Amino acid sequence: MNLKQLRYFCATFETGSTTLAAQRCHVSQSVISAAIAQLEQDLGCRLFERHARGLSPSPDGVNLHRQARALLADADRLTASFRQRACGPRELRLHVHRTLSAGLVRTFVQRWLSISPEVTLTLVGEPEDADASLTTQDCASPAHPFTPLWPEQYMLLLPTNHALQAQAHLSLQHLTDQPLIERVQCERATIWHHQLALSGVRPKVVARVDSEEWALELVASGLGITVAPVGPQPRRNDLIYRDDVAELRLTHRVVGLSPLSPSVSDMLPLLLSHVAAINFGQDQRPDHVRPYNAVARGPLAQSVRAEDS
């Protein structure tokens, strides 16, 4: 067992796919599969269950991920401490796409401050001012590499007392005349409006917001419903998440990290380690392996699962 194998295992656990793990780690899929097979042989247990829909971690896999993440963080911190001596104080200017969860950003900042105090973290509002960007694949600059971290599925979000929560099967037609909280900052807004128009659906817009947190709070208040991307962050108890709307099952996005400055190349392993671990707590599996809240769906997910199976 070595650190590289553990990194490949953690990437597979967190993306739910050897294909996305290979993209994150910049190696071939066969290298990822071989590393996992060697780990399973060394540890004498199965780390993943293989099935037609892809991979899901076994209980041993969940346990290994928790311990491997702690070990990798220690290794990255050790490396960074020696580089700090040679380079002096460092600063990382990070841009975070504004449609990402504020809770995700909070957890990342807390983790960074506690584990990497030798590198000053500054959050900036525009990618042009940043050394790296935590963003979506659609919004990443084609001039810079993009490392996928996790998939997010677009879901219909309802207040807990909404009539549609009892509907067995949902489609966009059910949104007709429904009060809608419109997320104007969404990179898929144009596609979303086109899809509604093609379906002949005209929801009643009761609020237009440019903040994810505003949108979720207004839905929780009962003002209306919304469609939003949902990733591996913990679910709110005051919202109903419907991932079974027929037309939305083909709508997803991939969140990842894009380095924008050559000066941060030596910090990327440490940065990736922090970002990849922030949403997977000690007893929490990624939501994309849970049957009701499956996140990775659609054409990309189907190709990923076909290659993983």
Score class of each variant (00 low, 15 high):
Asn2Cys: 07
Leu3Arg: 08
Lys4Val: 01
Gln5Leu: 09
Cys10Gln: 08
Thr15Pro: 05
Thr18Tyr: 00
Thr19Glu: 02
Arg24Met: 01
Gln29Asp: 08
Val31Phe: 01
Ile32Lys: 06
Ala35His: 01
Gln38Met: 10
Glu40Asp: 15
Leu43Arg: 15
Leu43Trp: 13
Cys45Ile: 07
Arg50Tyr: 07
His51Gly: 05
Pro59Met: 13
Asp60Asn: 10
Asp60Ala: 15
Val62His: 03
Ala73Met: 06
Ala73Gln: 06
Asp74Thr: 01
Ala80Leu: 15
Arg83Phe: 15
Arg85Thr: 14
Gly88Tyr: 14
Arg90Pro: 08
Leu92His: 06
Arg93Asp: 11
His97Gly: 12
His97Trp: 10
Arg98Ser: 12
Leu104Trp: 14
Leu104Ile: 10
Val105Trp: 04
Phe108Trp: 08
Gln110Phe: 01
Ile115Val: 06
Ser116Gly: 10
Val119Gly: 11
Thr122Trp: 02
Gly125Leu: 13
Glu126Cys: 04
Asp131His: 15
Ala132Tyr: 03
Ala132Asp: 02
Thr136Trp: 14
Gln137Leu: 14
Asp138Trp: 11
Cys139Lys: 06
Ser141Thr: 07
Ser141Pro: 07
His144Gly: 07
His144Glu: 07
Pro148Asn: 11
Leu149Phe: 10
Pro151Phe: 06
Pro151Asp: 06
Glu152Met: 11
Leu156Asp: 12
Thr160Gln: 11
Gln165Pro: 09
Gln167Trp: 05
Ala168Asn: 04
Ser171Arg: 06
Thr176Gly: 05
Gln178Cys: 12
Gln185Gly: 05
Ala189Glu: 15
His194Val: 08
His194Ser: 12
Ser199Cys: 05
Pro203Gly: 06
Glu212Cys: 02
Ala215Val: 07
Leu218Asp: 11
Ala220Trp: 03
Gly222Glu: 10
Leu223Ala: 11
Leu223His: 09
Gly224Leu: 10
Pro229Thr: 09
Val230Arg: 11
Gly231Glu: 06
Pro234Leu: 13
Ile240Tyr: 10
Ile240Asp: 13
Arg242Glu: 14
Asp243Ile: 03
Asp243Glu: 04
Leu248Arg: 07
Arg253Met: 05
Val254Phe: 08
Leu257Asn: 08
Pro259Arg: 04
Val264Phe: 09
Met267Asp: 03
Met267Tyr: 03
Met267Ser: 02
Leu271Glu: 06
Asn279Phe: 00
Phe280Cys: 02
Gln282Pro: 13
Asn293Trp: 13
Ala294Asn: 07
Arg297Ile: 05
Leu300Cys: 12
Ser303Trp: 02
Val304Ala: 03
Asp308Ala: 08
